[in-house]
Amino acid sequence: MSLSSELLQYLLSGLTMGGIYALVALGFVIIHNVTGIINFAQGEFVMLGAMFMVTLVNAGVPAAGALVIAVILVMIVVGLIEFGAIRTAKKASPLTLVIITIGLSTAIKGIALLIWGTNPYKLEPFTKGGPIHIGGATIIPQSLWVIGTTVLVLALTFFIFEYTYWGKALRACVVNKFAARLMGINPQRMSLLAFVFSAALAALAGIVIAPITYVTYDMGLMLGLKGFVAAVLGGLSSTPGAVIGGLALGIMESMGAGLLSSGYKDGIAFIILLLVLFLKPGGLFGTSGTKRV
């Protein structure tokens, strides 16, 4: 394999994982922008999406239907969590709320362990067929599903925030929470909306990545942390930043693992996190002044 086709290979696998990180990062950013909370349970929402999907498919539900049901189930679970655990502690400081999300993450993981055990589950790829060859590199069809889903979801997110009334109401909360309240926008309802929307993004990420990585009760930890790193890389309050941060992280990881050693793969994300926090706390693309969704 020539160096250029090798690089292309790393780029393609980097984009695949990067798409997943982008979806998770977007969830972090949306919740952070609307509520001020960094939701460390985001990774568990990914796991729940994948687990529900596997369980439904194994129970004989056709994949397309299982996907829709799994996403909706995660949205409902997260909606209940927001209602029960976040809203009741609304008067608490943002730091307390962040710690609550860490507790939630541990709790969800524990419950998942009780329900699904420690065994990894396998989900069949969405479409059958061998790897596809592109200019000396190969890509598996499921990677195309991941990339396609990411593009579609990002376009939909953009559309919602840019062109729908509800999206604009969410943005109003981000731009000026006080004024948003004066318009009669209920901050609690917006918080619920942000959590449920982010849950859908996370669930989708978990479902499309499941055939590539296997599904385990603890898969949310790494995906959540990587998504967080991607969000920080993008400045934590910008949605385009989250997407670029996710893709950049995926590509850097894949290049680092390929060119140096695959043992460094997970370490790379955390080195990047530390570098960003030390050198550029506003994120690589951070426009520290104005906040935008």
Binding site: K168, A180, L182, M183
Partner: peptide, 29 residues
Amino acid sequence: VKAGISLVPEHREVFDSLSIIDNLKLGAY
């Protein structure tokens, strides 16, 4: 607000990164 009291706050507090038309539409939330 629903009952019929609307406050135009000190320092205006418009939604700076939204358009004029969106600001007006959000007023009717």
